[in-house]
């Protein structure tokens, strides 16, 4: 870096500052827009488990473990939502403790800046979303009588 003359150093410095400004402008716009997601009455589920938070998950990508899908589970009162993120595919299961036949649940995948995507679970409570790219996401599950909203997560 000492080899740079003043003009070269100024040019590099300008590029560095411009990069930072562009990043923060973009993130500021997204952060401000996040406020439109404010809902006072959402029944927020609790994150029970995220395999990405397991101790050593970041360094344990050895043979046999590498490439395993990420598993997240959420819970609110008697309902558990299990989500498996495998590449751009999201598979899930809705489990209701002591649940009797109450018909399929509706699962909505929400992302900022994109339309909601809604599917129904099958008779066993399973559901699937394809083509889910990286980014912030949350799920809303509802069935007659209750609904559940997960915290936001980055997938």
């Amino acid at each position: 870096m000492t080899e740079w003359n003043d003009e070269e150093l100024m040019a590099e410095l300008t590029a560095a500052v411009e990069e930072e400004t562009a990043v923060s402008d973009r993130r500021r716009a997204a952060a401000r827009a996040a406020f439109t997601w404010r809902t006072v009455d959402a029944e927020l589920a609790e994150l029970l488990h995220d395999s990405a938070l397991d101790a050593g998950a970041a360094v344990r990508s050895g043979p046999g473990d590498a490439g395993g899908p990420r598993m997240l589970s959420f819970r609110r009162s008697a309902v558990t939502l299990e989500v498996e993120v495998d590449g751009d595919e999201v598979l899930g299961e809705v489990v209701e403790d002591g649940g009797s036949e109450t018909g399929p649940a509706t699962v909505t995948l929400q992302r900022p800046g994109a339309d909601d995507r809604t599917v129904e679970t099958n008779a066993s409570g399973f559901f699937r979303f394809s083509d889910v790219g990286p980014g912030s996401v949350r799920f809303v599950v509802s069935r007659a009588g209750w609904s559940l909203t997960t915290p936001w997560a980055t997938i």
Partner: peptide
């Protein structure tokens, strides 16, 4: 700036950094 500084320390890609930032603010809203 605080969120940005923590993201930089973790050396995420710019796209992952954007996603993390987005999620943090969405989580703060809730």
């Amino acid at each position: 700036p605080l969120v940005g500084a923590i993201i930089r320390r973790h050396r995420l890609s710019e796209a992952d950094g954007d996603d993390v930032s987005q999620t943090v603010w969405l989580r703060l809203v809730e």
